[in-house]
Design a protein around this nucleic acid. Structure first.
Lengths: 399, 399
DNA sequence: CGCATTAGTTGTACGACTGAACTATTACCC
DNA sequence: GGGTAATAGTTCAGTCGTACAACTAATGCG
């Protein structure tokens, strides 16, 4: 899922490749790039040297390369209150390189282009209903949208570094294969060629990319470095982020929390098993429990809850499944996305109670449950960010 | 837990430290060491060069350093059927450097010394009953055992690289702290100073180290690179190994599968929650279900099962919990250790059935359930191996 | 206006890997 | 038995990237 686990890593980091002088340069180039991109305040060359531990002379050479490649921009020297030569602040370059996030989901198609500053440079979102749709037609339409976006940014002088296609299903990114996407009714196909794009596009799972979007953080709250992201919709998917990187398991098919046992005596699930979380905390189950049609819009449920015309009991089941999750992987921060973001006020108490009761390490750890910050169509942002992260991880390719 | 996640890594691998020429050397030294240690057949210098991608000249310098440091030994040149100068096979040095595994468990204390070939060089195991014991007294005794072992190997000319202390509980290896070990009745203490050893010893969780012992593989079956190791005893612990490395979560407190929900309407667990796996597949629960006293030896249960005087129903619960595990983390191989190793014949059918029914990716993946291979007191072996792995990861410290 | 201070650049030194040439040792074939 | 091809290992000059120190640039302060 996504290439975080499969991308060709810098030789110095892979642990299994010969390191030559060149790898050194690549490694340090990435180091400098990260310092510039991830620092809270713009750093000067001297600041980068101090924060990375590299010599000032080395940093200068590296920064010059990044500037020449158009990845980093120099701001006017700032003559702060201090004595000494004014520092030249370094910031991510605006509108030079963009990453493309693409997504097919049940109710919309979308393409989003982000530049290195994280700004949305161009976007197309096309609402629709793609339940049991024709892959070739839908992906063709998405390809058209992507071409529009790509042309637009190219015309403005930017370079498209690549794309990520987010899909709601089991995806094998290495082979570029979609195994199955139940809610689209798609299975066993290679989606990328159907886009008809002349661009490096990789497939990935939607929840995983949405989780990556969270790493940007909200306006008020900083993003945690490690968290479990749970995206509740018709299905319930999750992603595990540890130290700002996706943990994907063997194939990237982890986080299937929707099919964790809540009660073996519970109702039968579409997967064939009994008492899966999805039957308690999936969107359709929540709608039915509130006396609404299963495909009613989320706003209707929120309205009924606000008016106290319905109760949300899904929190207990969700809390139980999340407690299992925390017991099994030991990640203390849980970010609720998808429909859960808006429903959090009615879920929080039950979820936190279940976590407190069932998580063995609860007495020693502060468990946090928070709402997703990334906004609508998070997978688009996450996909674009992942492309850009790859640019950052190997700036030498752009130098 | 253990230092796999916390040890100071080579600068070239940490991803966040400046890489200098020296880091290059360290990285390649490790690369060469791994090639020698992990290769199926002894490699020559030229073979190492081919398998690592380094130049022959470079490999020669590096191998010479490893030989000088006593980590690698040259076998007599072998004049195989081929033309050309005969190759000098390189193998791990015997009896030069050892790692120490230490363990306190409910029913024994132990110390084991392994050399780089994986051979047990010295060992002391002291059966006993350490339920609700005095930490200072027990750890003092263990320290005495360790000193005996250490003196023995030192007298034979070997160097002790360090030790790992395995404990059955929540451990914070960074702080060297044991939070709580329910079955020992210990909590909130620093175990290492109580050993009274003049040696670098780090604490770790018992199940995690036992999992590492599996990496050595059995005589017949090769060890998988990624697996979930489940150790069933009074408590049930698990460890996650991905690409031959432990995945520890945020604090190393993952794998608490014993407290995953099997049935919310089930019996109350010692942890306070209801229907935890431990109440179905913990040793005491299995004994009771077979009409035996909860502290009866495992052999009694096996005898009754062999005689068909009892049924083992724990497999269904275990399978349900394991299905959750696989759905959440996507690791396809499950290794059953502890009491489960001997009980596997009576567990397998139920476990596999549950996995097949409940794991969403089951149609696309071959899920494997196998018995642990590491033999008794696996955590001792795993601890010693981890110390040696650290030697391997940074041979420059020994050069 | 000069000094202290900080940022950034230049140049030399050093360490590590590479590639090619060289030596060492064997098998094979005539 | 000797020549040739083949393979292993070593030597040495070349290249590249970083460090360190000295230098220049630009500012604040007294």
């Amino acid at each position: 899922m996504t290439t975080a686990g499969t991308a060709p890593e810098t030789a110095t980091r892979s642990g299994s490749a010969a390191a030559r002088q060149h790898s050194l340069r690549e490694h340090n180039l990435e180091l400098v790039a990260r310092a510039v991109f991830e620092g809270a305040e713009p750093l000067s060359r001297a600041g980068v040297a101090a924060s990375t531990g590299l010599a000032r002379a080395t940093v200068s050479t590296l920064v010059d390369q990044l500037v020449a490649a158009g990845l980093v921009r120099e701001l006017p020297a700032v003559t702060g209150g201090r004595a000494g030569r004014p520092a030249v602040p370094l910031v991510p370059a605006r509108r030079t390189v963009v990453g493309l996030g693409l997504e097919v989901n049940v109710d919309y198609l979308g393409v989003r282009a982000l530049d290195l500053t994280g700004e949305v440079v161009a976007e197309r979102v096309l609402p629709g209903s793609f339940h049991d749709s024709d892959p070739a037609a839908v992906l063709g339409r998405l390809g058209d949208l992507a071409r529009e976006v790509s042309d637009e940014v190219t015309a403005a002088g930017m370079t498209v570094a690549g794309g990520r296609l987010a899909l709601p299903g089991l995806v094998d990114p290495r082979a570029g294969l979609l195994q199955v996407a139940p809610n689209l009714g798609w299975s066993s196909l290679e989606p990328v060629p159907l886009l008809g794009l002349d661009l490096d596009v990789q497939v990935a799972n939607e929840a995983k990319l949405a989780a990556l979007a969270e790493l940007a953080g909200g306006s008020d709250v900083a993003a945690p470095d490690s968290f479990v992201f749970v995206s509740g919709d018709v299905g319930i998917g999750a992603a595990i982020v540890v130290d700002r990187r996706l943990f994907l398991g063997e194939r990237g098919w982890n986080g299937e929390i929707g099919h964790v046992v809540v009660d073996p005596a519970g109702p039968r699930c579409s997967c064939g098993a009994f008492g899966c979380l999805e039957q308690y905390a999936g969107k359709e189950a929540m709608m039915r429990a509130a006396g609404l049609p299963p495909d009613a819009p989320l706003a209707d449920l929120v309205a009924r809850l606000l008016a106290a015309e319905a109760d949300l009991t899904a929190g207990r089941a969700l809390g139980s499944a999340l407690a299992d999750f925390v017991n099994l992987i030991d990640i203390g921060t849980i970010v609720l996305g998808g429909a859960y973001t808006d429903l959090l006020p009615w879920l929080r108490a039950d979820v936190e109670a279940a976590l407190g009761e069932r998580v063995l390490a609860a007495p020693f750890v502060e468990l946090q449950v928070r709402a997703a910050q990334a906004g609508p169509h998070a997978a688009l942002t996450g996909g674009a960010r992942e492309v850009l992260a790859q640019v950052l991880a190997d700036p030498s390719a752009w130098v």
